[in-house]
Write a protein that binds this DNA or RNA. Structure first.
Lengths: 341, 341
DNA sequence: CTGTTAGCGCTTTCAG
DNA sequence: CTGAAAGCGCTAACAG
């Protein structure tokens, strides 16, 4: 039952060659004749040696072929968010190609100590919920690629959130509109609430802020002013919170006739709510989303939104990390005119 | 910029104590006085030592606190399946509690060699698409827990698929029904097709087979016979394939008036299809699903289905692995009468 | 092209 | 409670 677990040394002894030769047979084919190499590999297989122990290799080489994917939130939450999911898909795609492995790491953790000594690098998807984590990450020496936020001197992958938001708002807005904004993680609060004069989260750490700026620029241009009581904070892009916010905003007086949402999930829940209240979309209420998730493409009326390719983001992030380049990328996005505007 | 990266030895030297003492301070508090321990820890922190190197610990201790979650399919696919996702959530929940980490591993890989030497164990969610992988997994010595399939002498987590399928079919069937079955991975084919006389996948490796048996038992009891040309194979629980199958079955003559689906995703796509063809559900067509995914609870008409808790499965699997027990679990399920039957 | 050897950084007996 | 020493299993100089 329990195999004795051969080591490279055992094998070298048995085959009457040096350990270096066995090691080279596996790791550096150019260091010995092809013939000898084939012989050795065959002999190893036949006596049941499966190759050098990976744990020892990690220590010795300082490389594990494991990449940590640091999610913005807990794993539980992130894995159920379609946008995060698509991103993971993109990363997985590239890692598989390069025979690397993926360790999921929660962004609400305190530190990366548990894994920093053996992973080869970090892909950091969204500003970690625990702000401490970003600092720790930045202070260590392994490669880091950030996505949807920035860390000093680290490459990042982003879209131009400000411009995208500006454009979608511009597309949607009409003179004299009564506007509301459903924001995502604008302030440091676990609750659905209006932001009033709560200080906003750090710009660098927060795409929400950039999206807000884009909206506000479009509003200004359209000659519309909006109070902070018409800007909601939603702590997570999750149905439950989105519904709460949707109800609040739709039941507020005077009711807005256009609502700019910082994610499709939020927009879709709002849309559901509005329709079940008998509102005519888009005539009584216009809605814009952000992301371009698959579900939005399946749901009628089609959502007017900003499409970004999360899968592509994942791929670019993985490639950037594996090449250890320091170049940041700005990826393209696309406005999608649906039926909600 | 680049810190010199202190080792335990350096630190011991600097503090004038032995390496064992430093090691004990971190790992075995009972081996030294609380006072000395606090002093040492404080001193370490102040000189910038973050604690023992994890890579070295893994080699030395033979334990990494990393658990591999082996998915049935590629990571790309699995992460976008709501059932798999909920399962991952459950696993993540327990791992977090126990400060373990999760490595995602694709079930279409050839072997686990890349990670077997350093992970602490495997949770295997669904029979791996590469059947080879199951063998390799079973031959190695680290703990394995299987979910939704079995491996000899390994603990597993399952529901009683046969009985559940029997019950949902029994609930739905009426005398003289024209029945079709939309099966999931019944045969080893990448295509949507009728199974005809293609050999079924191995029973042990295949919940689909058990579900099929349950359906057939109910059919037999109801005095209905069904040919293999009315049983479809769908290779993955993905929208694209489900739609293909839905069209085939709904356009076949005579059209079935009841269709038993092996997943909610399949059932939901079928439902969409049927409604867009103007069919009256449930009067002209009854549909049953399997799983009880969240989306089914949001979609009208409500799906009649078998609800199982994937999150619970994940938790139980993780607990079983971490406790290294050999007890298998059979989890409960629940029939949910919706509006499609 | 092959063999010897010094570690990678740590933990854990074991003797004091 | 502390310190010295022997590896965990491997790789990469380096010398032959």
């Amino acid at each position: 039952m329990k195999k004795p677990k051969l080591t490279l040394k055992d094998v070298a002894l048995k085959l009457g060659v040096s350990t270096a030769t066995i090691s080279n047979a596996y790791n550096r084919p150019d260091q010995l004749s092809a013939l000898k190499r084939t012989e050795i590999l065959a002999a190893c297989k036949s006596i049941g040696y499966e190759g050098p122990n990976k744990a020892a290799q990690i220590l010795r080489k300082g490389r594990s072929n494991i990449v940590a994917l640091v999610l913005a939130d807990s794993i539980e939450y992130s894995v159920n968010d379609p946008v995060a999911n698509t991103f993971i898909t993109g990363v997985a795609n590239i890692l598989k190609e390069q025979k690397k492995h993926m360790l999921l790491y929660a962004g609400d953790s305190e530190s990366v100590r548990d894994v920093v000594d053996f992973v080869d690098g970090f892909i950091c998807y969204g500003a970690p919920r625990n702000p401490n984590l970003a600092d720790v990450l930045n202070r260590q020496n392994k490669p880091v690629v950030t996505v949807d936020f920035n860390l000093p001197d680290r490459p990042s992958v982003n879209i131009d959130n400000e411009q995208a938001s500006y454009e979608i708002a511009r597309l949607a807005l009409k003179p004299n509109d009564r506007v509301a904004i459903l924001g995502l993680r604008l302030i440091d609060s676990p609750s659905v609430c209006r932001i009033y004069d709560t200080p906003l989260l750090d710009v660098e750490h927060c795409i929400a802020h950039r999206r807000l700026n884009g909206y506000l620029r479009a509003l200004k241009e359209a000659g519309i002013t909006i109070g902070n009581d018409l800007i909601w904070n939603i702590p997570e892009s999750e149905g439950k919170f989105a519904i709460q916010a949707a109800k609040e905003v739709l039941n507020s007086h005077p009711r807005p006739n256009i609502i700019l949402c910082m994610s499709d999930i939020i927009a879709l829940e709002l849309l559901q709510c509005a329709m079940s209240m008998g509102l005519d979309v888009p005539n009584q209420l216009r809605i814009t989303g952000f992301d371009g998730i698959a579900e939005a493409a399946r749901t009628r009326p089609y959502l007017t939104t900003v499409c970004q390719s999360s899968a592509e983001k994942g791929k670019v992030a993985a490639i950037t990390l594996l090449n250890d380049t320091s170049e940041s990328s700005i990826l393209p996005y696309e406005l999608k005119q649906g039926e909600t505007v």
